[in-house]
Design a protein around this nucleic acid. Structure first.
Length: 432
RNA sequence: GGAGAGAUGGCGGAGCGGUUGAACGCGUCGGUCUUGAAAACCGAAGGCCCUUCACGGGGCUCGUGGGUUCGAAUCCCACUCUCUCCUCCA
């Protein structure tokens, strides 16, 4: 949620920044007008309340309270009417302001390039060379099915399209990868969390998921008995909301959390895209990295977060590149986002494995996550950052495609031996 | 699922319907003392909103939302959450 004060003080700044997103800026004047009405009504109602409180205090000071009350009752009744009349519209105005503001995406950082398609994202750096194969490299679903470690047909039988089954070495490798990612996150100072996978509507709203991604989420509708619950589309949701409505001590920052969770997405609007393989699934596992940090350092922390995630690919020996997303490609919550893309030989292309975003105070304001610089300071909103570090399925796909051998087996990065329990998958599906 | 108890400031814990924005303790912060620290003593601290250039002024806030009353942390209603016991289970 945008800062209403900022909008009040520098409406032009908000207009300019919002135009870069390609969104209409009518909301600025509309919100300002609603805000003016709200403040006028508030002031009127509150000054009437002050008068009433003065009369009430007079009664409590009077020697004969009953007599004083009887005498002042008509004046108080008149004030009650004034208070009610003046303040009547305030809740509705507040709702309208909140509703208008909650649909507006975060302000983009200055360095975010203009552009409305991913083609205009800007290459930051590349690491590693796409490997050369003396044969035509196959896609991971072909490799995995041939090895008997991926089973899409039976997954479809159980649950439909966009589900997968990992079997034998595939399941073990998946588990090892999660372990590896969590291990490195711990080394980098992240505290591991095992959060709920079902969260309330208010939690979804607080992390900014309910506007743009509403149609992406699986939900249990609430009924008379039970509150609505949403399956998390990413661990970013529970991790960021962990300190909702809290005031943190400055010396506890930055707070860094990691979690390995399943993620659930409907993938509405992705019909026909990535229909094969592990790239786009309704259910996938991911290790997420989240920071709550001080405003002045959040963009530096975004660099650190991005390097934490990219460092995993380096350790795995997977070629990748880092892109700075352009305005049109940057998500609702984010002020600035780096995508990390890994090389997939089977697709002859880089594919996104991690989006690392600085959401500045946008989520923190929605969620009420604040900190106090010192004992006497006013609470300020923290900045929140998040990124994958990393998704299990997509990285597993990259490992299969990059490590594939002519005989159909797959060699794994040595660093994984300790985590997966093996160094290669042989053509018959056995491990070595 | 059944029965009961409770929700007060960073924490613990008081609180006859009328100077209780809230005693007391702990913790925090600032002093005094000390070479320094501890202890002791003195003092200061909630949050949100409106208004003001500022000093300041005002409103709301004792789980949430309503109600009673001139006046509610205190009374009534609903909801939410927590705890205990039973039941059930991983």
């Amino acid at each position: 949620m945008l800062n209403l004060e900022l909008l009040r003080r520098e409406p032009d700044h908000v207009r300019i920044a919002s135009r870069r997103r390609g969104i209409g800026v009518e909301f600025v004047d509309r919100v300002l007008e609603l805000d003016r009405e709200r403040r006028a009504a508030l002031t009127a109602a509150e000054s009437a309340k002050a008068e009433k409180n003065a009369l009430t205090a007079e009664i409590s000071r009077a020697p004969d309270k009953k007599a004083a009350a009887a005498e002042l009752r008509p004046k108080i009744a008149a004030l009650d009417e004034r208070i009610a009349a003046a303040g009547a519209g305030v809740p509705a105005l507040e709702e309208q302001i909140a509703a208008a503001l909650s649909e507006v995406p975060n302000l983009l950082d200055r360095v975010v390039p203009d552009g409305d398609t991913e083609a205009l994202n800007v290459l930051q750096r590349t690491w590693g060379e796409p490997p050369a194969f003396p044969f035509a490299p196959r896609a991971h679903w072909e490799i995995g099915e041939a090895l008997g470690i991926l089973d899409f047909e039976r997954a479809a039988k159980l649950s439909g399209t966009r589900f997968s089954i990992l079997r034998g070495a595939g399941a073990r490798l998946s588990r090892g990868l999660a372990h590896f990612f969590l291990d490195r996150a711990a080394r980098n100072g992240y505290v591991e969390i095992n959060p709920p996978l079902l969260v309330s509507r208010s939690t979804m709203w607080a992390t900014g998921q309910l506007t743009k991604f509403s149609d992406q989420m699986y939900a249990f509708e609430g009924d008379g008995e039970n509150e609505a619950l949403y399956l998390i589309p990413t661990a970013e949701v529970p991790l960021t909301a962990l300190h909702r409505d809290e005031i943190l001590a400055a010396d506890s920052l930055p707070v860094r959390y990691t979690a390995h969770t399943p993620c659930f997405r409907k993938e509405a609007g992705a019909a026909g895209r990535d229909t094969r393989g592990l790239i786009r699934q309704h259910q996938f596992e991911k290790v997420e990295l989240v920071w709550l940090t001080e405003p002045e350092r959040s963009f530096d922390d975004l660099e650190t977060l991005t390097r934490n995630a990219a460092g995993l690919l380096e350790e795995l020996g997977l070629a990748h590149r880092v892109m700075l997303l352009c305005a049109g490609d940057t998500g609702f919550n984010a002020a600035k986002t780096y995508d990390i893309e890994v090389w997939l030989p089977g697709s002859d292309a880089y594919r996104e494995v991690s989006s690392c975003s600085n959401c500045t105070d946008f989520q923190a304001r929605r969620s009420g996550i604040r900190f106090r610089r010192d004992a006497k300071a006013k609470p300020e909103f923290v900045h929140t950052l998040n990124g994958s570090g990393l998704p299990i399925g997509r990285v597993l796909a990259a490992l299969l495609e990059n490590g594939q051998r002519a005989d159909g087996g797959v060699d794994l990065s040595p660093v994984l031996h300790a985590f997966a329990g093996f160094g290669s998958i042989e053509p018959d599906g056995s491990v070595r």
